[in-house]
Amino acid sequence: MAASVQRNLTVVETDAPVRVSERPKVAGQAVRVRGLTRRFGEREVLKNLDVDIAPGEFVALLGASGCGKSTLLRILADLDREIIGEVEVPVRRAVAFQAPRLMPWKKVWRNVVLGLPGRPDRARALAALEEVGIGQRADVWPKVLSGGEAQRTSLARALVREPDLLLLDEPFAALDALTRIKAQDLVGELWQRHGCAILLVTHDVEEAVLLADRVLVMKDGIIAHEERIDLPRPRDVADPVFARTRGSLLDWLGVRHGTHGNA
């Protein structure tokens, strides 16, 4: 039985750099996951998971804490290879974590271009910082940034890599309510401009419905529910369809009047 287990992470190159305001027209999927299982000791955190994300698609992954959604993101980010199954992700991918994870010993602009080939390109860093609205903060230490500014820097650092896949791990969770709304709007805009596929891991249903093309609800290591959101953008929280979608997703999460059982 154990012999049939295969451990395999394939990295597939998607060609052509992503142009501004142009979705990549690449055949196939940006992310393709088949039969993914991840165990921590006896516990199966991900159970035989299948996930596809189309190029340029915005997918939100919803779930309660401990449901395995961050584990999936870490696997897609190639931070965890203790897996069984098949995972294909673009070579060019970037991650923004819940904590901004900036290098405190590097000025903001150097953080943005850290890891890019060649000499640190200040102009490129400045352009990326301008895009997220904090160009004037390029020359300060990360310690003096506010939470929102640090998270914007983290976004700039991800986007300057022109990723085909952007992985967002609850990037707004630590922000205050007002800053969060602005940051969500920003991510929506950036996505439309860069056209990269995004996987947003979150436990905020409203955020998911506001931003995503498709919402996956994860429960106990499987995708329990999938919902396509066809509302026109920018989306209105007060829209009755919005409210209905949110309600249905909350039901799937088991938050409102009793739980829907199986998938």
Binding site: L79, R93, A94, V95, F97, A99, L114, G115, R157, R161
Partner: peptide, 12 residues
């Protein structure tokens, strides 16, 4: 270790 991870995702 979170900074090491961040460094890995940046392709260092």
């Amino acid at each position: 270790s979170t900074l090491i991870e961040a460094g890995r995702t940046l392709g260092l």
